[in-house]
Design a protein around this nucleic acid. Structure first.
Lengths: 213, 213
DNA sequence: CTTGGGTTGTGAATCTATTCACAAGCGGGC
DNA sequence: GCCCGCTTGTGAATAGATTCACAACCCAAG
């Protein structure tokens, strides 16, 4: 796998993730090979796009035949960094945190939640599966002790920026932010924002423009 | 407001949504005017980008002064379609559904959840606030009766595509899909996918590429 | 009234991403 | 061994988004 030095765009990575899911469906249905056209159909893109995306990372297909399903799954997992375990902390044990914690994807894909934090004394000490909820005061020591690499923020907007700073200072390299607040962090930190407001406003914008005609 | 006919890109709309949030923060802090630079700093983009985005929809600023905060909030709300109420249905009364239902943003912004569905007989009949959970068998009649315009899917991947079809046939024009499944729907339907797997894989990809150096 | 610092609005230039087109390669059939 | 249908891999062309540069404008101060 060439693993190129040049920058890979976010949309390419999102598509790789979609190809992986398509390939897993194909594997489950017993297919051994998949053409770029088939992958495109399932992932919602075009055949040339699939080929270009994959060719960025190597030459995985056989001309005339397509891509071998099982080996390509392995290659994509390697590219996406899914062949190892990631140590994840959950900040905020509210409803969103609970929803994420029970999501089976985490286990299946090796994202292991090793720490949960909240500032509500009622919640501190409770166990979710085999993880005890810790008070946010213990953030730094627990993050270091558990060697946390990814933090998921499911706290209100107000405390989010300060918590993100603390988490980064404690050595966490990536943040998935569900709080509707912008985080200003050093460039080496990977941040990904999921903003429900934005997603709904996208819908209302599109509906508003399409309906009055 | 010119409200142009040419296509507006999704990233532009996402930024408009971010500007709106930035402006609301500025309003709360008592500011009357905001420059493109100030908005860019808060929304995480550049000043020319802010000006270009806004100029797509009209001329909202005053040269030498910036943009008037309160009027621009009103203009952005109008552009994003937030000046009216939207009737929303929640499909799936699990943890994700519960998290969304309690999110105060919905009320604040006029997204009114008028129907909740599940297929679990234990849940059917329960009330969340003042909305009774209905069985999914009643989908079509309730959607029509409540004049639902937006559906939010928080169901497992397997039933998602079929439910999306039913919802669209019942006249719903927009879907926010939290299920990790691709929906193939007629082009007039607005679909927005939120995929936790993708978001996490984006992080693990970036971490994998940045760490080994 | 004029000057000057500051800011918008926008065409042009640049940069990035997607799509196209086709040579190269594979395997099955004869 | 040699076509032939099929599919990849990729440079070139196109389309799309962002950034730049600057004229037009606004207000305050003198």
């Amino acid at each position: 796998m060439p693993s190129p030095d040049r920058k890979i765009s976010e949309s390419t990575v999102r598509r790789l993730s979609a190809y992986l899911r398509s390939l897993e469906a194909l594997e489950a249905s017993g297919a051994e090979m998949a053409s770029s056209g088939e992958l495109a159909r399932r992932a919602g893109t075009t055949a040339p796009q699939v080929r270009k995306d994959l060719s960025t990372f190597g030459s995985f297909g056989k001309r005339g035949l397509g891509y071998p399903v099982v080996p390509l799954i392995g290659s994509l997992e390697a590219i996406l960094g899914l062949t190892r375990e990631w140590r994840v902390a959950l900040l905020g044990a509210g409803r969103v945190g609970a929803a994420l914690h029970t999501y089976p994807f985490f286990r299946e894909r090796g994202f292991r939640i090793v720490a949960i934090f909240d500032n509500d004394p009622e919640k501190v000490g409770l166990r979710w599966d085999d993880t005890t909820i810790r008070h946010i005061d213990e953030l730094e020591s627990v993050l270091a002790g558990e060697a946390v690499e990814i933090a998921i923020l499911t706290v209100p907007a107000a405390p989010a920026p300060a918590l993100a700073d603390r988490v980064v200072r404690a050595g966490v390299g990536a943040i998935l932010n569900f709080a509707p607040a912008r985080l200003e962090l050093p460039p080496h930190v990977v941040v990904n924002e999921v903003n429900l407001a934005m997603e709904l406003e996208l819908l209302s914008f599109a509906l508003t423009r399409s309906e009055p005609r």
